[in-house]
Simulated scan of single mutants.
Amino acid sequence: MEFSPFNNIVKRCLQGMEMEAKGNPEEANQLFRQGWEEATNEFEKFLAAYYVARHQPTVADRLHWLTIASEHALKADNEATKSALPTLYSQISACYDDLGDVENAKKNHELSTLYGAAPSDKGPFYHGTKADLQLGDLLIAGGLSNYQSELVMNHIYFTALVSGAGLAAALAKGDAPERVYIVEPTGSFEHDPNLTDKKFPGNLTRSYRSQAPLKIVGEVTEWGKQTPQAIQTFRKKLDNNKGEIIN
């Protein structure tokens, strides 16, 4: 399945993180446990188990839940969960290290390094905007940020999730129609550090950036658009976000 902030298990985990931020670990743990019990597929089970692990009383218990999370991530076998494996194996390695198991600590550290290479995502890729563009046009870095009006961006951003590009188009400045273009990177690209290993492990939104241009090769005209209320909620979160953009 694709990551969506509107997925019930994702929302449950977000609620748990809000409780953590408010200093209510017991309530957070209950929400994460509820997410685990409600999870219905490998992706949801991986995600819920990862957060359940954060509230375990012992290193052995934490290792148990991180191992469960990694097993479900592997079974899900998609680009989103693959991106979380370096984080999972790194944390599993740290648990083994704390338990004095040098061999398994080394093994999982090596797995973390192995999966931590450049993105293997083959797309297709999308870019959401309100700009009126044509096939063959090149999107280049150097534009102003949609989120910090005076910041000139050193990269051009894109995603493998059409829903994510649609959300970006809805949040883009201006009153022009929302557009989602199919794009091809013309050079190397990396995980977007503004979203990778932040709230969620890895790059679950399959968000990337490149200093090389993106070539427009098509356009999507239908995608799951969010309600005006949902878009307004996202706008408020962006307005309240005081974090620095990694440019």
Rank of each mutant, 00 (worst) to 15 (best):
F158I: 01
E37K: 12
N241T: 13
M17R: 12
V180E: 05
E38C: 02
R54D: 14
G243P: 09
W223Q: 04
P124H: 09
G202A: 09
G164C: 07
E27N: 03
V10L: 02
E178H: 14
L66P: 08
N203W: 12
H72P: 00
H109I: 00
P193L: 02
L14H: 04
E2V: 13
A21V: 04
T87N: 10
A28P: 03
I182T: 15
D239E: 15
A48M: 11
K82V: 06
E244R: 15
W36T: 02
G128A: 01
Y181G: 01
E71V: 01
D121E: 04
G187A: 12
S149Y: 08
T58S: 14
P124E: 03
G143C: 07
T205M: 10
K215L: 09
Q229H: 11
E222I: 07
E37C: 06
N247D: 14
D175S: 13
G202H: 09
Q148A: 11
Q148L: 12
L138R: 03
Y157M: 03
E20R: 05
N108V: 01
Q91N: 14
V220S: 14
K225L: 03
V10Q: 02
P228C: 05
L151M: 13
V183H: 00
E18Q: 08
S90A: 07
E222L: 05
M19Q: 11
P25G: 07
L161D: 07
E42F: 04
L99Q: 06
S145R: 00
A105T: 02
A160F: 03
Q226K: 08
K75Q: 15
G35M: 07
V180G: 08
D192Q: 10
G142R: 10
L85F: 11
R179G: 00
Y115C: 01
L214F: 03
Y96V: 03
E44T: 09
W36S: 11
I9A: 01
H127L: 04
G128C: 00
V217M: 12
G123V: 03
T81C: 05
D98H: 08
Y157K: 06
D175N: 15
F6E: 13
V152S: 14
N241P: 11
A160C: 05
D97T: 12
T159D: 00
K45Y: 11
I156Q: 03
Y157C: 01
K11L: 12
D61Y: 10
A118S: 14
N154Y: 07
K199M: 12
T81K: 09
Q56M: 15
N78Q: 07
